[in-house]
Design a protein around this nucleic acid. Sequence first.
RNA 1: GGGGCUAUGUGCUAACCUGGUAUGCUUCCGCGUUCGGGACGCGGCGGUCUGGGUUCAAAUCCCGGUAGCCCCA
Length: 484
Amino acid sequence: MDIDKSRNFSDWFNTVISDAALADLRYNVKGFVVFRPWSVKSMKLMYAAYEDELEARGHSPSLFPALIPESNFKIEGEHVEGFTPQVFWVEQAGGNKLEERLAMRPTSETAMYQMYALWIQGLADLPLKIYQSCQVWRHETKATKPFFRSREFYWIEAHDCFSTEKEARAQVKEDMEMTEAVVHQQFGIPFLFCQRPEWDKFPGAVHTYAADTLMPDGRVLQLPSTHLLGTNFAKAFNVNYQDEKGNRSPVWQTCYGPCISRIYGAMFSVHGDSKGLVLPFDFAPLQAVIVPILGKEKDGLAIMKYAEEVLEHLHKAGLRARIDSTPSTPGFKYNHWELHGVPIRIEIGGREAEQKSLTLVVRDAPPKTKATIPLASAAETIRKEGRLLSARLVSKADAYFNSHQAHAKTMDELKAALERGFIVRAPYCSMEKEEGKACADEIKAKLVGDVRGIKYGEAAPAHGEKCVQCGKAAKHFAYVARQY
RNA sequence: GGGGCUAUGUGCUAACCUGGUAUGCUUCCGCGUUCGGGACGCGGCGGUCUGGGUUCAAAUCCCGGUAGCCCCA
């Protein structure tokens, strides 16, 4: 495809979606896209990795209904206010108007917590840690973008209840650790965890922490967020437990929402190159593709027979592999599978069949880098090369992310860094709504930059630091970036 | 949320200004020759987003709808 994603990311993104058949954007409802097999296979692997991580940390799967009665939806005040503008409503069934309209869940707090109220009686029922993998619907801004911001998306939401604030805060921290373990270490996507400003929290939450990653066009994209809900929802939905003294108290809650379809978009955007997708070995639908080079008719049969033997060897080792025996020429297939991000290509012609060897090409290798290896150790070598490829992707992505960070003391410095596509740290007056929002609005209006919040765990600035915008004493270092 | 641009077969595109038989490439199907970095020949299938208006006549002009892309908030 040959498009430089750092020069024209939008063009690269749309081309790769269409050429690698990740999604079909021709479905005729705005903001809704058809996800095609090549992206879905990867997303299923990503779901599985995430679900394993959640279950290893004590979460259990459930499935809640997609429709939420309006009366449930309206129980928690801030939540209603925040989400109502985005809700799709079901108002009719079979031509009859419903007595009460039903919200298509934009998120499931109001579906799940009324059930939690029934399930939780005492300390023995806590902690309760439940997740579901599902799709949700939000009537987003008209600037929809496949994978990044669509009106229907596929995610996991984990909703946890505890008897103490301390445990809930520990859960928020664990959510961040899971994000590191999965999104960064496995998917290879670096990010910065920010505590969002008071004016930019999840509706109904006490605190919101969200992972921001950086796209090749210099805009940040929010990946998983985790929220300390406090006892707001528990009080509204009567999710109470009886403590040792016999008192009924509301539970402390957290929720965590990694959006797989968006993370997948971030993953291929971060790792892709001018030839197309580059996928981490563990999340590629195909880990190795065998391209037979048939030559003259009489050799053809022997070559195909040997290719089958190689495939069987790889399948026995548990690798996802196939032979591309379509009639196209080898050169066409090389380009085709590079576009699709298959990590390892195996070329098998007359020479390989004779020597019982195979020629190996790794997706991110410099042009014309090929190695010939013996069949006996092929699966082992492919696994090793796959691991190395994934590791290179993480370090390349980290290097890019780390080299696009800046510090600004003045609005001019901030402006310059934002224009270069950086995430910028700057001293900032306050994350409280009354004191700090005006500066964020100014920064948005003047510099098209968004105040993303403060970095989790980072120390406050020394005395004497002044807010980059208003010049008042800075309580925080804020992180500012252009956002999706 | 505001604005701009656009919609012709699977995809890209010509014709649109100046109304009159819809162009070429690609994909796809068939046959044959090919195969170590995007092969080729011959034959075939397939199209004016949608609703209304103007007109003898609409891909073309006008109005609405829907969808897409881009810019701004």
